[in-house]
Amino acid sequence: MINSLRQLGRFFIRCARYFGEFILFAVKAMGMLFDRPPFIRETIVQMYHIGVRSVPLIGLAGLSIGIVLGMQTIDILGKFGATQYVAAVVGLSMVEELGPVITALLVAGRAGSGISAELGSMLVTRQIDALKVLAINPVKYLATTRIVACILVLPLLTALADFLGILGGMFIGVTQAGIHYQAYIYKTLDFIYITDFLPGLIKASVFGLIIGTVACHEGFKVQGGTEGVGRSTTSAVVLSSLMILISDVYMTKILVTLWPEVG
């Protein structure tokens, strides 16, 4: 019993220590945002790697989720004779919840793991030390640029996933429920306002901050050579996915409280 309590205590201390280090790292990296030089070019390069290269994956995911959501919703709404509302259900589900969360989880898997592995390898091969002795702050050059890129790119990818999800739902609405495509578009516009997109895009930016910070933090604390790089890559994906899901619960509650029409 005492042994179990001791282990539980150790686990909580480890969690608290990790979280403390993580917050300090995030503050340090973001605190350098306005320091000179701004490394704008590096940030744009990272936006390309994290954002543009994720477009096919996010696009396909958004489209398929919209299709599946459309198929299931039509089935359920059909029982109540309300199939015409499929546009509202698919649209609102995509923009408020599924779009940001699915996009964030996929980017965490694709780009987060890549960032962590890249920085970890740079640490192991002493490229990060080389940056230091060339008088370039590695946290600013490597972490701040990647975190900012994630924050900027996630809302754009989310908007893409939302759009393609709605398009997927429309395809099913038109082909399976026989709804005219114009009627589907009008129904979507009737139920979804620009204000419905904003909470999802805010969430997406916060998810971007989480993905970028977790990936860079894990990359910068690699220990134990190439084996350590593998471990940190796995940790980056697992931890950022967990943090995305947990923060989603809190952010939804906060956004619903501050912005009642979201609910």
């Binding site: 091969t125 002493r126 490229q127 080389a130 008088a135």
Partner: peptide
């Protein structure tokens, strides 16, 4: 660091 150069054992070139 602007005055002192350091050559790493493994080179540490940015790959």
């Amino acid at each position: 660091w602007m005055k002192v150069g350091f050559l790493f054992q493994g080179g540490a070139l940015f790959d």
